[in-house]
């Protein structure tokens, strides 16, 4: 069979030559390899202090965006929930009352908007489906926790805080 990588070696079972029988040259060869690795630059990233740079299209935890006047974009149309292949999103809609115009952009809004971070596969289909520019995936990782119930992110964790940068990719909820 033709080799794809050209690195495969054909195994031949033949008598060992004298230098091979002495083993020492082979051992020295092996030790040369290990000592080469000893002086190599280590690829380790010291995690909490150092962080690997994310790709520009990285899909992390979600935010629910506000517009320039600080109003929530989401209109609770449910398209994201329909698009979600993992069925991680659940929405309860409510009607905007008088006097709440500064809070919600549309007449209908999401009373609760929950994403189960254990179900979410971070595919980004909710982002694609959203007609109102409301849900985005940021570069943030969903943080670890000891309790499963804490992985159900409600609006308290998802909605972009007032006065922060509007662009979802530069938005950093934990570093203000």
């Amino acid at each position: 069979m033709h080799s794809l990588s050209n690195r495969s070696k054909v195994v031949v079972k033949k008598e060992m030559t004298l230098t091979e029988k002495m083993y020492l040259p082979a051992i020295l060869g092996g030790m040369m390899i290990t000592i080469k690795h000893f002086f190599k630059r280590k690829p380790t990233i010291q995690y909490p202090e150092q962080k690997r740079e994310f790709s520009k299209v990285y899909r992390g935890r979600h935010i629910l965006k506000r517009d320039e006047q600080g109003r929530e974009n989401c209109t609770a149309c449910g398209l994201c929930a329909v698009a979600c292949p993992a069925e991680a999103i659940s929405i309860v809609a409510a009607e905007r009352k008088k006097g709440e115009e500064h809070l919600y952009r549309e007449e209908k809004y999401a009373k609760t908007y929950e994403i189960n971070m254990l179900r979410c596969i971070f595919c980004g289909l909710c982002e694609e489906a959203c007609p109102k520019d409301a849900v985005y995936l940021t570069e943030e990782l969903a943080p670890a926790n000891f309790d499963r119930s804490n992985f159900i992110f409600g609006k308290d964790k998802l909605v972009q805080p007032v006065g922060t940068s509007a662009h979802p990719k530069t938005y950093k909820p934990y570093k203000k």
Binding site: T34, I35, H37, F38, K40, K42, P43, T44, Q46
Partner: peptide, 13 residues
Amino acid sequence: KVAAFIQDRLGPN
């Protein structure tokens, strides 16, 4: 440390 360096790691630090 030697084990780590030979295996391209950093070892206890």
